[in-house]
């Protein structure tokens, strides 16, 4: 009976049909593995920041692959190109696939335009983790922050993502907030950026961004002879 198994052999991993993503393993198996990841990384570093960075790197690799996988499987090879779109994709789709539920909340930072927060009362990876006092603000959520950064970065929205504990009144365990601070280029309109790149060669023309609709770009002549003729171009399919 050797070699009689359910698994078929494929010469190339790409020939293998993509699984539907319904397969599950026990939570403890994951928890054991994750704890090994943390413990191994602890031996490789000498400070907390470094440890968080390494966990984030591990998460980044997961995130980049999750984006690829989900876009291919669930979204017919399309991915979100708008900032809010990708954020809600992370908050709902990615979270649902990875952690079995939609994240508790997605908020926009009140102080800074470029900050968004995903909060989770009990992050899956923090379920069985207690942080020793001497490790201060260390948060294993760095791994999840890495996943989020991986997804955003691969989708073309570079950001700095960090995980923080936020104490909640009346509750013993703090909740975890994933803080996303987008890099400047992420906040720019994709269409505007593309148009800018396209017309960058024309010295005569300068671009103005549409004020009402963000994905509308004005093309303005710089020379005085064509007094302020503004041609507006809008993408045909505003969704994309």
């Amino acid at each position: 009976m050797i070699g009689v198994g359910k698994i078929k052999q494929y010469s190339n991993v790409l020939d293998k049909p993509l699984s539907k993503g319904k397969q599950e393993v026990s939570l403890s198996a994951f928890a054991f593995l994750f704890s090994e990841l943390v413990q191994y990384n602890q031996t490789q570093v000498d400070n907390i920041a470094e440890l968080e960075r390494r966990l984030e790197d591990a998460g980044y690799a997961v995130g980049a692959r999750v984006l690829e996988l989900l876009c291919h499987r669930d979204k017919g090879n399309r991915r979100e190109t708008r900032l809010l779109g990708i954020l809600s994709f992370v908050h709902s789709t990615v979270w649902k696939v990875l952690f079995g539920k939609v994240a508790d909340s997605l908020e926009k930072g009140t102080e800074h335009e470029d900050e968004y927060m995903i909060s989770e009362k009990e992050l899956l990876v923090n379920r069985f983790i207690s942080i020793p006092k001497d490790m201060g603000t260390f948060n294993c959520g760095a791994f999840v922050a890495g996943i989020v950064r991986g997804v955003l970065d691969s989708a073309g929205f570079p950001a700095v993502v960090t995980a923080h504990f936020v104490p909640v009144e009346g509750q013993q365990r703090p909740r975890t907030t994933i803080l996303i601070k987008f890099a400047e280029e992420s906040l720019e309109d994709v269409f505007y950026t593309t148009a800018k790149a396209l017309f960058s060669k024309c010295d005569e023309l300068s671009l103005v961004q549409g004020t009402k609709k963000r994905s509308k770009v004005g093309l303005m002549s710089g020379s005085a002879s064509l007094s302020n003729v503004v041609v507006f171009i809008a993408p045909q399919n505003n969704q994309g």
Partner: peptide, 27 residues
């Protein structure tokens, strides 16, 4: 037992394991 324990998506598990192996290979 498997039906009664809490479970997570196998893909999270797989990708996390992959991340570990890749980290080890680099280190």
């Amino acid at each position: 037992i498997f039906a009664n324990v809490e479970r997570v998506n196998a893909e999270l598990f797989t990708l996390t394991y992959g991340a570990i192996v890749r980290q080890l290979l680099t280190d």
